[in-house]
C-alpha cells in the first residue's frame, strides 16, 4: 500500500521528494502503530515494570530518590528503547517491507530519517507517559523545561545510533539479543550526559554545571546523525 504510493509518487529523487519520502516512511510506521498499538503498549508496560523493579531494588525513599531519579529514568528509557527499536526494525524485515522500501526509487537516507522519526516518536510517547506516572508515584515534579530538553536531546542521540544499529542487528542470526550488546557500549556518552544533566536539573544545580553535558549531548546528536546518514547505504545494500 504505502510502498506503492512511494514508487508512484517519486520517479526521480529530487529535493522535495526526499522530504516526502521521509514523511511517507515515518507516517507508514505511525499509522500502522495507530492501528495495532503493539509496539507502544509493549514499551509502555515494560517501562512501568522496570520502574517497579527499581522501586524495590533501590527502595526509592525520599533520600535515595533525589540522587537516583535521573538514573532510574534513563535506565528505563534505554531498556524500553531497545525493545522498541528491535521490534520496529524486525517488523520491516519480517513483512518484507524493508525490501519494498529499498526497491522504491528514493534516497536510502530518506528511509533512515523516516525510521528515526517514527522511532523517536514512539520513544517520546513512552517518555511522555512514564514521566507523569513517575511524578505521581514519587511526588516529584519532573515537568521542568530543562529536563524535557535533556530528554529530547538524549532520545535523539539514542535513536539516531539505535536505528542504524538495529537495522544491522535484524539482518543477523542472533538479532534479538544483539541490539543491546551493539548499542549500549556506543551510547554510553549519551547516557552519562543525559543522567548528569537531568540530575542537575532535578537537584537545582547551577547552569554552569549542566551546560557541558548539554553541549556533549548536542555534539553527539549532530555527529552521529551525520555518520548514520553517510553509512546507512552500506547497511541496507543487498
Amino acid at each position: 500500500m504505502t510502498e506503492s504510493t512511494l514508487t508512484t509518487t517519486t520517479h526521480r529523487p529530487a529535493k522535495s521528494s526526499f522530504w516526502k519520502a521521509i514523511a511517507a516512511v515515518a507516517w507508514k510506521d505511525l499509522a500502522a502503530e495507530l492501528r495495532s498499538r503493539e509496539l507502544l503498549s509493549a514499551m509502555l508496560v515494560f517501562s512501568l515494570l522496570v520502574i517497579l523493579i527499581f522501586n524495590f531494588a533501590l527502595e526509592l525513599d525520599i533520600a535515595t530518590r533525589r540522587s537516583v531519579t535521573s538514573g532510574v529514568l534513563w535506565s528505563t528509557f534505554a531498556f524500553a528503547g531497545t525493545l522498541g527499536l528491535n521490534r520496529s526494525m524486525a517488523i520491516e524485515k519480517d513483512r518484507g517491507c524493508l525490501d519494498g522500501l529499498l526497491l522504491a526509487p528514493v534516497d536510502r537516507s530518506a528511509i533512515y530519517f523516516g525510521k528515526v522519526i517514527s522511532n523517536l516518536a514512539f520513544m517520546l510517547i513512552v517518555e511522555a507517559i512514564v514521566l507523569p506516572i513517575y511524578s505521581v508515584l514519587y511526588n516529584t515534579n519532573l515537568f521542568q523545561p530543562g529536563l524535557l530538553l535533556v530528554i529530547l536531546l538524549g532520545s535523539v542521540g539514542y535513536v539516531a545510533v539505535g536505528t542504524l544499529l538495529a537495522s544491522m542487528a535484524v539482518q543477523t542470526r542472533t538479532r534479538d539479543v544483539l541490539l543491546p550488546i551493539l548499542l549500549f557500549p556506543v551510547v554510553v556518552p549519551v547516557l552519562i550526559a543525559a543522567v548528569k544533566a537531568s540530575g542537575g536539573y532535578l537537584t537545582g544545580a547551577p547552569m554552569t554545571d549542566i551546560l557541558p553535558w548539554l553541549n556533549l549531548l548536542i555534539a553527539y546528536d549532530v555527529i552521529f546523525t551525520a555518520i548514520a546518514f553517510m553509512v546507512f547505504d552500506y547497511v541496507v545494500e543487498e
Binding site: 542504524l164 539482518q171 552521529f224 553509512v231
Partner: peptide, 12 residues
C-alpha cells in the same frame, strides 16, 4: 557491517 560498526565505535 563490521566496517560500519568499527566506524561508529571509533567515533563514540
Amino acid at each position: 557491517f563490521g566496517a560500519v560498526y568499527t566506524l561508529v565505535g571509533a567515533v563514540s
